[in-house]
Design a protein around this nucleic acid. Structure first.
Length: 273
DNA sequence: AATCCCTGCAACCGCCAACGT
DNA sequence: GACGTTGGCGGTTGCAGGGAT
């Protein structure tokens, strides 16, 4: 079964007809091929370039929620569940923000999970003040993001200049100091991204492992402990994110060397697990 | 066996902000 | 600055499958 939508046109006019409903394997294949050749973005040109009778929104959604190669399949783990609960308590229904802390999970997936597992348990908030508060928070968050994007761009540039040596020496320095105070796993908290994303001690076995960004969460940091000294870390971790797989420093360095560009803030992934 | 209900999930819709002209 | 386009986000819908009655 399939559905067809009509785009644009006036009385008696059909400008373009979009297919709707479930995606077929062939459509998936075409979309994957399109992204492989042209990369993500420019979704509205998919229909022209890939021969797909789907609108841009539909293509983007299909890719983001289903076809992306870095998606994690399978059940939400108890660990992920606790993160969702924690972050929902902090952020509310900002699913994309929450999703950034769960690599491989989509906002849609988390949203669905929340609805089916927790919505009934949650107190209904029909309070108008709550809504207003939420909207103000959203606006504030957006403003913060804009500022961070600008900062990140500057930091990425600084990172280019500093080079890999600096990072490694920082990592070593941080590792030795953290091991002396008991170490502990790294905790990445979305809120901290807006101020700093310097890891709070880690107990990875090797420098390589650290460079690969394979950390696990344990300690929730105090936002007050954040300061400007973490600037270099911002660049480092966020570029890790640009890579999108939480890890390969070589690629990260290559990405960083690509010169000025728009920061991929929406792709920020804070590896929790 | 039939049906009802619930859950999980993919997909769509409307709104909004960024961006380009 | 106005306007149109594009992409991102949150809310909602609708279908499929499984368990309960």
């Amino acid at each position: 079964m399939s559905w067809w939508g009509v785009k644009g046109g006036g009385w008696g006019m059909v400008e373009e007809v979009w297919r709707k409903g479930p995606w077929t394997a062939e459509e998936d294949r075409l979309l994957i091929e399109y992204v492989r050749v042209h990369g993500e973005g420019r979704w509205n040109s998919v229909s022209k370039l890939a021969g797909l009778k789907r609108n841009g929104k539909s293509c983007r959604l299909r890719w983001v929620n289903y076809l992306r190669p870095d998606l994690k399949r399978g059940q939400i783990t108890p660990h992920e569940e606790s993160i969702i609960l924690e972050l929902h308590a902090k952020w509310g229904n900002r699913w994309s923000t929450i999703a950034r802390s769960l690599p491989g999970r989509t906002d849609n997936e988390i949203k669905n999970y929340w609805r089916t597992h927790f919505k009934k348990k949650a107190k209904p908030t029909t309070n108008n003040a709550e809504k207003i508060k939420s909207r103000l928070l959203k606006r504030q968050h957006f403003k913060e993001q804009r500022e961070i994007e600008l900062q990140q761009e500057q930091q990425l540039f600084q990172f280019d200049q500093l080079g890999m040596k600096k990072i490694i020496s920082l990592l070593e320095e941080n590792n030795s100091s953290s091991s002396s105070d008991g170490g502990g796993d790294v905790f990445y908290y979305p809120d901290q991204i807006t101020h700093s994303s310097k890891p709070f001690g880690y107990n990875s076995n090797s420098l390589e492992e650290q460079l690969q960004g394979r950390f696990s969460p344990v300690n929730i940091p105090d936002a007050n402990t954040m300061n400007e000294d973490n600037a270099i870390w911002d660049g480092f971790w966020n570029m890790d994110v640009v890579n999108g797989h939480g890890g390969n420093l070589g690629v990260v360095a290559a990405t960083a060397a690509c010169g000025p560009r728009k920061p991929y803030f929406h792709n920020l992934v804070i590896p929790f697990c």
